[in-house]
Computed example of a mutant assay.
Amino acid sequence: MPEGDTVWQATRRLHNALAGHVLTLSDLRVPKYALTDLTGRTVLDVTPRGKHLLTRLEGGLTLHSHLRMDGSWKIYAPGERWRGGPGHQIRAILGTEERTAVGYRLPVLELLHTADEDRAVGHLGPDLLGPDWDPDKALANLLSDPDRALGEALLDQRNLAGIGNVFKSEICFLLRVTPWIPVGGLPAEYTVYLPTLAKKLLEVNRERPTRITTGRRDQNLFVYGRAGRPCLRCGTRIRVANQGDGSRERPTYWCPTCQPGPSPQPGAPQRPGPTPTR
């Protein structure tokens, strides 16, 4: 699933391609908007909000999209072959004289009045890469349910917006706690540092083509995707288990030595918890 840094990059590409230009091509391939024609409207800006993309148009309209697991927006020059996927996966086409933006496999696509954007993103907590970032508010949101597992709380976009499964695992490793520790059980110094750490990781990576949390060129990530491989700190084999409400596969990686605390035993069923909100 794209996380806040990759959504920020996608939004910037869309903004650079479309903002300030008049739409000469408009095709929204979802039944509700099949007859909607946006041609003739100027694209004002494209703005990220957590993992959501808001394409604002002249006339007070916003096209809201969300990439979820495998959605994407691709930008093409005139005459360039579209390579983002088969035609039946296209959900939106926005074209100007100079560029065409094609949205593939978009599970969320809706047209809103710009004044009503809160209907789509008003539930989100402070955006780690946005102008509304407020570390105190983010921390208060996380601590509002002290018994909730830290990993689940970090994924809940109502607490703070932009963290996905990769950053969840990496943040917990850097804090030296397991993703299953209750938020209220975090040592005080870690609790205060958590919002700062999360923001730093996303800010560093929003300009990078490849996500890096280690600062090492030979290994990009500390734990995510490294199950069975040695920990970069202590050499213990990294473990993986699903964390969540059981409705989604959310593989979670951790080092059992560097991250002491509660964790599932191999083969143990996961306790259902609140579903994180996107």
Rank of each mutant, 00 (worst) to 15 (best):
Y224F: 15
C231M: 04
L128H: 10
E3M: 01
N205F: 00
E249D: 13
V121R: 08
A17V: 08
I238L: 11
P230M: 07
A34S: 13
T62G: 04
T100G: 02
L38I: 04
T39W: 07
D147C: 10
L53T: 12
E110A: 14
G79P: 02
S26G: 12
E189K: 13
G40T: 04
W82S: 14
D70H: 12
T214Y: 03
K168M: 10
N242W: 05
S263Q: 15
Y253K: 04
R68I: 08
P48V: 01
Q157T: 09
E117Y: 03
G79T: 01
A153Y: 05
G20N: 01
L25G: 14
L14H: 04
I75A: 01
S65C: 10
A19E: 01
I212C: 11
W180A: 06
R91Q: 10
P276R: 05
A138Q: 00
P269S: 01
C172K: 04
Q157L: 08
L53R: 08
D116T: 08
D145M: 11
G267Q: 06
I93V: 15
C234T: 10
I163L: 15
R12E: 13
I163R: 07
M1A: 15
S65W: 10
P262S: 09
N159L: 05
D5R: 00
G164P: 03
V121M: 10
R83F: 07
G235D: 01
R119K: 14
P260S: 10
Y224V: 06
L38W: 02
L194S: 08
H88R: 15
Y190P: 05
A188T: 14
R81F: 05
T236V: 03
S26R: 10
R83L: 14
G185R: 09
Q9S: 00
L111Q: 07
I181Y: 03
T55A: 14
R226P: 01
K200V: 11
S144H: 12
R271C: 10
D134I: 11
D127L: 11
R41C: 13
E249I: 14
P274W: 00
P187H: 12
P266D: 12
L194R: 10
K51A: 02
C255K: 07
G215S: 03
H21K: 13
Q9I: 00
Q157W: 07
G84T: 04
N16G: 06
T47M: 09
V223S: 13
W180I: 03
Q270I: 15
A120I: 07
L129E: 12
D5F: 00
P78M: 08
V183K: 08
L143M: 13
S263M: 12
P126L: 02
A138R: 00
V121Q: 08
D116G: 07
S169N: 02
W254I: 06
R99V: 11
L221K: 11
